[in-house]
Design a protein around this nucleic acid. Sequence first.
DNA 1: CGATAGACCTGTTTGC
DNA 2: TGCAAACAGGTCTATC
Length: 272
Amino acid sequence: MPELPEVETIVRGLKPKLEGNRILEVEVYNENTIKNPESVKEFKERITGKKIIEVKRRGKYILFILEDFAHVIIHLRMTGQLIYSEKQLSFSHLRLEAKLSKGFLYFNDIRKFGTISLLAKEDLAKEKGFWTLGVEPLGESFGFEYLKSKLVSSKPIKNLLLDQRVIAGLGNIYVDESLFFAGISPFKPAKTLSPEEISKLVSSIKFVLTKGIENKGTSFSDFVDSYGGKGTNQNFLQVYGRGGEQCRICGKVLAKGKIAGRTTVFCLHCQK
DNA sequence: CGATAGACCTGTTTGC
DNA sequence: TGCAAACAGGTCTATC
């Protein structure tokens, strides 16, 4: 479900509701959702009673910083949903719920891949995927020089863009979309991109993500924002999910392939 | 080093 | 119609 624009949409929705709010009670319905600490009992003890000071996003992770500076690190993986409500609600795949001093927070997750960790600030390196994240693609440090410095291997460019240690937050949808806007084949070996292509790719990534956020995310099937509402970016996709359909630019049939185990859709005519 | 398959799960779509 | 296989926004591990 969620890539950077979807996670950003959730965080923007939760921020005004959770900051300053206090966690009164936590119920865990799926023990495997809690990744750290190992004991769910300890997780509950350490989180109960704490005030949430700040809510933010890093890559595809959602962070709650608590008053004791401990971090709640949430990853939604494929089907996780984080929903805030003033009133009590019920869900068919509820994995965790928290009663707050004002309202309720629900973690609903069909496939149970999502994870929640509670780590003291000095233990953040225990969350490996989080600790090793690369740059934020919408930040100033992501630009021509940075991307160029990372394009040293002959792996397909799509592999590099999906690597969270290189760029934090891109996933299958926005990588395919970015490569389409940049006119670059997803199979092109990373180190063979010309300076013009690198430059076009940087601006395409920023464009596609910015549009995704403006449209409040891509609700292909399960994504909902922090109030349970759907995004609209699925109506603007050029290639993702459109294999076999016509390219909106040249009219030719869009090709479908596999890269890094992921379905990849691209235009043989528009992407070289 | 890299590419690929399998694992983790459940639900929906596709193909025979 | 019915049922099994394939597939889905992600990432981690094992294996060759």
